[in-house]
């Protein structure tokens, strides 16, 4: 099974809210000092799913990402986890691309890769949280799509995919090649092994540019962006907390119950 995994490198989404900062112009997020960017956690789980399938069915895993030189960090991480090859899609014209443009770039890159059985993407990127790229990619390539996959395997001649829904799950069957977006219910991804890190560090990551993959200039980059960002702001969720501290549980809970009754919620 040859599997392509599309990944994105983002600011670490696990940083505490207190370290989250916006630029003075209100249009940019300021990366926290000393905390390096990471592979988008949902994409890391897509890599994990690819590895689980490879362990069972064999094959080759290719990692695709769009970005500057620094984005090869995320690719190296995926390689260290056990992926076989990485490709960096890099071109000045790609900068500022929105989800539709990103899907276009990935579409053209994937059309250059001749043989594959499965394309995996994370369910969404934990920065803009849109959840668009995987689905649009599938539409562009006219391939079957199952979103929010928790697990997948190739049985007989089809992909069997468990899809997470709010109250349970669904099972889909899809012909090969298919596109899946992977949800976090898959479980924690493996850590790269020491050997994995060494092999990954030695691997060359080829760079493919706009000319090579044949992107349409009008479809990509900041100019093609369909929406204009007005501003970013931090939502106000703060409430004034009436905090009971240093009291015996019996006393603290008595007071709490009283307060909740006064507030009319008990």
């Amino acid at each position: 099974m040859n599997i392509i995994v599309c990944i994105k490198q983002i600011q670490d989404p696990e940083i505490p809210a207190s370290k989250f900062r916006l630029g003075a112009d209100g249009k940019k997020v300021i990366p926290p000092e000393g905390i390096p960017p990471v592979i988008n956690p949902y994409d890391e789980q897509a890599v994990e799913l690819a590895l689980r399938i490879k362990e069972k069915r064999g094959g080759q895993i290719t990692i695709l990402t769009i970005g500057e030189e620094g984005a090869s960090r995320a690719v190296k991480h995926a390689l260290a986890m056990g992926a076989d090859e990485g490709i960096l899609l890099q071109d000045l014209t790609f900068e500022g691309s929105d989800s539709l443009a990103t899907a276009h770039i990935l579409t053209r890159a994937i059309q250059k890769i001749e043989e594959f059985d499965l394309i995996l993407c994370g369910r969404q990127a934990a920065d803009w949280d849109e959840g668009l790229v995987g689905s649009i990619l599938a539409e562009n390539l006219e391939l079957p799509l199952v979103t929010l996959a928790e697990s997948a395997d190739f049985i007989e001649d089809r992909w069997r995919v468990k899809r997470v829904i709010l109250d349970g799950y669904q099972i889909f069957a899809a012909p090969s090649p298919a596109v899946l977006t992977v949800s976090h219910e898959l479980g924690p991804p493996r850590l790269p092994s020491g050997w994995g890190i060494i092999t990954a560090s030695k691997k060359e990551i080829p760079v493919w540019d706009a000319k090579f993959i044949g992107t349409e200039p009008t479809q990509i980059g900041a100019d093609a962006s369909r929406k204009k960002l007005i501003k970013l702001f931090i939502p106000q969720r703060e409430r004034k907390c009436d905090k009971i501290e240093g009291e015996k549980p019996e006393d603290a809970t008595s007071r709490l119950v009283e307060k909740l009754r006064t507030a009319g919620v008990l």
């Binding site: 989250f20 934990a126 929406k227 960002l229 007005i230 501003k231 931090i234 939502p235």
Partner: peptide, 14 residues
């Protein structure tokens, strides 16, 4: 729309 896991909100014009 909420972005960055709800750390921020983004406002777009269209």
């Amino acid at each position: 729309k909420p972005v960055y896991g709800g750390n921020a909100m983004a406002q777009w014009a269209l």
